[in-house]
Design a protein around this nucleic acid. Structure first.
Length: 560
RNA sequence: GGACCCGUAGCUCAGCUGGAUAGAGCGUUGGCUUGCGGAGCCAAAGGUCGCAAGUUCGAAUCUUGCCGGGUUCACCA
């Protein structure tokens, strides 16, 4: 419809325009455009005059029973419900909503990349949710997608953990408590390191560094510790990811890139991109990019660090997959670091579009009412606890009904994930049990419920065979159809801006439109022709619920 | 001090490629009442869109300054 309008304007005024149709308040019409006002200046004409000219042309078209001009030059259109229905059916396919914007291009999406030294906490909830949704959005828009879990299985956490293990733990305790013992030891050691630093000592800190060097030199004891710790941690990560229903194609952690990192740094120095300091550390100066701090790529003791493995990762991906784009789903805390890393990559001649898909923090309310980022110091919520609690709450809600265990888990996940997409990913979100497990209003379960309900109606209803629905006017379905027609544009926009929450907002609006529809229309009591037309439409709605929710990593239960 | 982000209803947040009377959820008040699944629907109350300039026919939206908050700034990840 927008393209048709643009063509019409080109025919009349001989200018290229980008026509955007919006949905105005119902009193004005079904669609509106402000194109006349935008053309006023370039054409040097009165906007209302332009609007009149366009409107006159539109009035010749049977699809627009009403074309009006309002205010400074808005063109308001009313369309017939029947033409909307036809438009929908003409464009319908099993892939309705998807497009090929990314055809022929490859994107790597990196998530959830948890720190392996601690149990999976809700600190990695957003990287998983948002990363997965972006992967799905890229797939829906034609990209070839490769996903990688960039595990934090190397570097300082390892050294910290070994030192702590020797000091605060034992084989028995580790065997007994597994990853939770890892976390306890890690946090205790971090605390000891901090206290030591305050005293001006470096005994433990030196030990940490020693273990890192040992690992880099493939010392058998260090390698054995690394294996044991990574095995315990990885198993836990897999359990959590299974419960979250997210997967990745690869798990190339930092350890995989550590050796390659050393070689990469060597190349940087030889190429003059990096500079070696007198103390042995190596930096990439970034003055020309406006940074007053360089990027450190090798410690003074020769050990690798985050930037080392990250640069190696970029180079490896270039060689292996030649991606057009790489998306890092990592929190906002690392914005500065990533801007440095990307600048360094540019300096290396990397052409790939590198995107830091960042999101706001998960906050909690302090006793004095102020908000603060959740931290392990203040008692972070673990993913396992979050999932268990959510499932308990879901179970309590469906008590007395025959709801399968799998469905209960879908509801729990629906609530958790949707709450992440309720706001823009950049917004800091407030962690609150009632908030994260909302069941009514703007929530995952509200949409799941609408979806289950429409599926139940479709399942129970007797569909009249061979009904000719071509004469049906679709007047009572108009709002629902108009909403369905918005879906492809929503998907395109969400993918373009990497903003999954636009899908969430849309699905909520669709569910609400459907609930309003039920209030006035009884499908089962409809006459055969109406019923056949309505069933077809509800099938479309059901498909979009499933499709849209799947873009967010949320599944539709059988019953709830 | 530098960089980035945020400031919209009592609370949590949308809206920001400029457009008509700024929206939703929760909470509050009232209505629909065993419905093809009510986890719903309708309605009411509730807002100097942090403040001030600028650009524009038009600014919550763009620009600048200020105020308030958050995150971050090489041997952590």
């Amino acid at each position: 419809m927008e393209a048709k309008l643009a063509q019409l304007i080109k025919d009349v005024f001989d200018v290229e325009t980008h026509v955007v149709l919006t949905r105005p308040d119902a009193q004005f019409g079904d669609y509106a455009t402000n194109v006349a006002m935008q053309l006023a200046k370039p054409l040097g004409k009165n906007p209302r005059e332009i609007a009149e000219t366009i409107a006159a042309k539109l009035r010749d078209n049977d699809d627009f029973p009403e074309v009006t001009i309002a205010g400074p030059g808005f063109i308001n259109l009313r369309v017939t419900a029947k033409s909307l229905a036809k438009n929908l059916q003409d464009n319908w396919s099993p892939h309705y909503g998807e497009n090929q914007d990314g055809a022929g291009k490859t994107v790597i999406v990196e998530y959830p990349s948890p720190n392996m030294a601690k149990p999976y906490s809700i600190g990695h909830l957003r990287p998983g949710n948002q990363g997965w949704a972006v992967k799905r959005l890229m797939e829906a828009t034609g990209w070839t997608v490769i996903t990688d879990n960039h595990l934090g299985d190397y570097g300082a956490p390892f050294g910290t953990w070994v030192v702590g293990f020797l000091q605060f733990s034992s084989d028995e305790q580790l065997t007994k408590d597994g990853v939770y013992e890892l976390g306890r030891v890690y946090i205790a050691t971090k605390k000891a390191l901090k206290e030591e630093k305050e005293r001006g000592e470096t005994v433990l800190a030196d030990q940490v560094q020693t273990w890192l060097i040992k690992l880099e030199q493939n010392d058998p004891e260090a390698v054995a510790y690394s294996r044991r710790f990574n095995q315990i941690s990885l198993q836990h990560i897999h359990e959590i990811m299974d419960r979250l229903h997210i997967t990745t194609d690869h798990e190339l952690g930092e350890a995989f890139f550590a050796a390659k990192g050393k070689a990469a740094v060597q190349k940087l120095v030889e190429g003059g991109v990096a500079v070696k300091n007198d103390d042995g550390s190596i930096i990439v100066p970034l003055d020309e990019f406006g940074f007053d701090v360089p990027l450190l790529v090798q410690k003074s003791n020769g050990a690798a660090l985050y930037a080392t493995t990250d640069l190696a990762t970029i180079l490896y991906r270039e060689e292996t997959w030649q991606p057009d784009r790489v998306i890092y789903a990592v929190g906002s805390e690392q914005q500065f670091y990533f801007s440095q890393l990307f600048a360094a990559a540019k300096k290396l001649g990397i052409q790939t579009e590198l995107v830091h898909l960042w999101f706001g923090t998960i906050d909690q309310v302090n006793d004095d009412g102020t908000r603060e980022k959740m931290s392990s110091r203040k008692g972070v919520v673990l993913m396992e606890e979050l999932l268990n609690t959510a499932e308990q709450k879901a179970r309590a809600i469906v008590a007395g009904r025959e709801v399968a265990d799998a469905d209960i888990k879908k509801i729990a996940l629906g609530a958790i994930k949707f709450s992440d997409f309720a706001a823009d990913r950049r917004t800091n979100i407030l962690f609150d049990w009632d908030n994260i497990f909302a069941l009514t209003g703007f929530s995952g379960p509200y949409i799941q419920y609408a979806s289950v309900r429409v599926n139940k109606i479709l399942h129970d209803i007797q569909v009249p065979q061979n009904s000719d629905i071509s004469g049906y006017d679709y007047e009572s379905e108009k709002a629902v159809i108009a909403k369905l027609l918005e879906y492809p544009a929503v998907v395109r926009l969400a993918a373009r801006d990497l903003e999954p929450h636009k899908i969430a907002t849309y699905l909520y609006e669709l569910a609400r439109e459907l609930n309003r529809y039920y209030e006035t229309t009884r499908i089962a009591e409809s006459a055969p022709v109406e019923k056949a037309a309505r069933v077809q439409l509800l099938q479309n709605v059901s498909h979009i619920f499933s499709h849209g929710l799947s873009l967010l990593g949320i599944e539709v239960p059988e019953k709830m």
